[in-house]
Every structure is written in structure tokens, then in C-alpha cells.
Amino acid sequence: MNEVVVVDYGAGNTRSVRAALRRLGRESVVLSDPRAIEEAPLVILPGVGSARSAMAHLRATGADEALRARFAAGRFTLGICLGLQLALEFSEEDDGVEGLGLLSGRVERLREGRIPRLGWSVVEPWGAAYYFAHSYAAVSDDVVATADGVAAAIERDAFLGVQFHPEKSGPDGAAFLERCLARA
């Protein structure tokens, strides 16, 4: 199966991610079936909605265990925005939500600047600017890139999470997604 699996957690807009993949010549399916999530070569955990409802949906469908199993098996997962945040142990959002715990760390409300943090920021050390739209951010030992001092990417083993939206970040975002597709 060469299709990219986009995890359905019952909220929001998976259309942008799927359109971005199509522009790169890749088809995708949106589903919550644990077996497909566990075994697909590339899974994207997209990023719209609230932490509490997303985690509740992942638990109800068994997708949470499937995501842990694929992580343990070393199969690549890309988390985008909320999808990054869900991979950590705990989020302050919605009065506190337990995450998947794939990576150690927590999600805290932004304290500086205008919130929500909206717009393009240069991600270091990668050098390109990507589009951010968030009010919470990761605090983790696994941060591998930052933007304006905020966690922009976390990575450990086969999980890469990005706080920005590559599907909304123009040609630079498309190039980023292409590298992820090549990696899976």
C-alpha cells in the first residue's frame, strides 16, 4: 500500500494536507482504523481541533495504541501542529490532557507575543520560513528546530513533529513534505 494514511480524529480539516500530498503526486486516505495506522509506511497526524477531543477520539478508535505500536516498530509518523503536541506526554490545553507519550515533554500555553501566534517564521537551523498558527507549544528535550525561540520541530526515532503547517507553507512547505515522503 503506497497511500499515505492521514489519521482521522473527528475534527477539522484534513483537506489541506491531502491536497498538498496530491500536488506532490501522492494519494492519501483519511481513516481511524488501528490496523492500517499501525502498518502504513507513512502516517500523518494532522493538526486541527482541540487536544481533549482529539485524544478522546484516538482512544475511542484504538488509534492511540496503533500509533504507539508503529512508533515502537520504527515506522515513520509525521505530526503536524496539534499532531506534534499529541505525541508528547501532557498538554496544558483544555485544563490538562494526557497525550500519546511517544516523546517526553509537555505542551504549554505560549506566554510571549500576540496569541494566537499567526504567520511565517524562519525555522532554525533549517533556514526556511514556514506558516504557524498556534497558541500552545512543545517543551521537550527532543526539540530539533526552533522559530523565534518557540519549538518548531521535535524528533525522536521514527517520529517527527512540526509546529508549523507544511501544507500551508508554499514551495518551502512542499519541499519539506517531499523530504518526509522520501524518508518513509
Binding site: 477539522g12 480539516n13 483537506r15 489541506s16 491536497a19 500536488r23 506558516y131 498558527a133 500551508k168 514551495p171
Partner: peptide
């Protein structure tokens, strides 16, 4: 939404949560 790879906002005639859902689920940010 199919062709644009930057964010976009849609206004005009958004009068209910259903209107907003219809627009966001069609691909607006």
C-alpha cells in the same frame, strides 16, 4: 484549497457555526 499552498480566510455571509463548518471543511483555514 486544492491549488493554494498558503493560508486563506473566507468572509461574507458567515452567520452560524454551520456556515463556518461548511467553509472550513471545504478547505479554508
Amino acid at each position: 484549497a486544492e491549488v493554494l499552498s498558503i493560508p486563506f480566510t473566507v468572509g461574507g455571509g458567515v452567520r452560524s457555526v454551520d456556515d463556518a463548518s461548511r467553509i472550513i471543511e471545504s478547505g479554508a483555514d
